[in-house]
């Protein structure tokens, strides 16, 4: 693979940004580290979500399903296996789940896909609840010596991996195929692109990443319950943040994640009982006012500036 000087610039900048982000735990251990974990978590989830949903325009609400399964892998496995191996297992299970969902739904239209993915998290949650009722359990304890800083560093590492994956896909045949599929699936098929295969492969990325994120976050919860691990709010927030930032660029979602997380912290502290309502409102506002997110806005401003410079 040959790298242009622009590629080197991108890689250098990304490395420096991630290295800077990794310093946060040395500066603070309290409130701001907690916010940092939240931002890192949504960065990982939204970026991997946009990798798939950006080019294919399929809105996936399966994040909570992958996340919850990852959390439960750690919950059930922590007594038996080393922690790091659980991350790998979670990733594999998430990817396989995504492949199965893709095989059954990606041939259908987007509407079925949205509903199916939303139902998936709810379905798994019900199954686990049912199993736990049957065994007389309510939740499971995850007791480890993993600190908030450890969780944060793992998430930053995962973010690096997600960005690298996205960058490599963007330069690959698969990435080109996905852009064509996003523009016109029929043209894609008649050009010889195996559209279903490409979409399934790509959907495995948020599948694996979602599950690994759940596994990384599990020790933070200490006590895991289905309602917590599979909360649909997570899926919706990931979609909102990614759309707010914009899915047209790899760095788009993070531009939405940071302001949204900060704003959300403030809002949910002031109006703890109206969060669902406010989440729905913010969704409508974003879709109406910023259909292509901040990225689209930046592109428009640049284009306008370019035209004025010419005039």
């Amino acid at each position: 693979m040959r790298l242009s000087s622009k590629d080197w610039q991108t890689l250098t900048f990304a490395t420096l940004a991630l290295a800077a982000a990794a310093c946060l735990p040395f500066l603070t251990a309290g409130y701001w580290l907690t916010i940092g974990v939240t931002i890192a978590m949504y960065t990982v989830l939204s970026t991997s979500w946009a990798l798939f949903s950006g080019p294919t325009h399929y809105i996936s609400l399966a994040t909570a399903a992958f996340f919850g399964v990852g959390a439960y892998v750690v919950g059930y496995g922590i007594e038996h296996l080393p922690y790091w191996s659980l991350l790998v297992i979670a990733g594999v299970i998430g990817a396989v789940m995504a492949a199965l969902v893709g095989l059954t739904t990606l041939r259908l239209s987007g509407v079925y896909f949205v509903i199916f993915t939303l139902g998936l998290a709810e379905f798994i949650r019900q199954v686990i609840t049912w199993v736990q009722n049957w065994t007389g359990q309510k939740g499971i304890y995850v007791l480890t010596s993993i600190t908030e800083a450890h969780i944060y560093w793992q998430l930053v590492g995962l973010a690096a991996l997600v960005f690298l994956t996205g960058w490599l896909i963007g330069r690959s045949r698969l990435g080109f195929a996905l852009r064509i599929i996003g523009d016109d699936e029929e043209v894609a098929r008649h050009s010889g692109i195996r559209t279903a295969r490409a979409k399934i492969l790509l959907f495995m990325v948020p599948g694996a990443v979602g599950a690994i994120t759940g596994a990384i976050l599990a020790p933070r919860y200490v006590y895991i319950e289905p309602i917590l691990a599979f909360t649909p709010m997570l899926s919706f927030q990931v979609v909102i943040m990614a759309l707010l930032g914009g899915t047209g660029r790899l760095w788009g979602p993070i531009v939405g994640v940071i302001p949204f997380t900060l704003l959300w912290e403030a809002i949910s502290a002031s109006f703890p009982n109206q969060t669902t309502l406010l989440l729905g409102l913010s969704f409508l506002v974003i879709v109406y006012l910023l259909p292509r997110g901040f990225v689209g806005l930046i592109d428009d401003i640049r284009a306008r500036a370019g035209r004025e410079a010419l005039a």
């Binding site: 045949r173 080109f176 195929a177 064509i180 043209v187 894609a188 050009s191 010889g192 692109i193």
Partner: peptide
């Protein structure tokens, strides 16, 4: 045009 050159009969 590249869409045809990359995929299709000869890749």
């Amino acid at each position: 045009v590249k869409a045809g050159a990359v995929f299709g009969h000869r890749r």
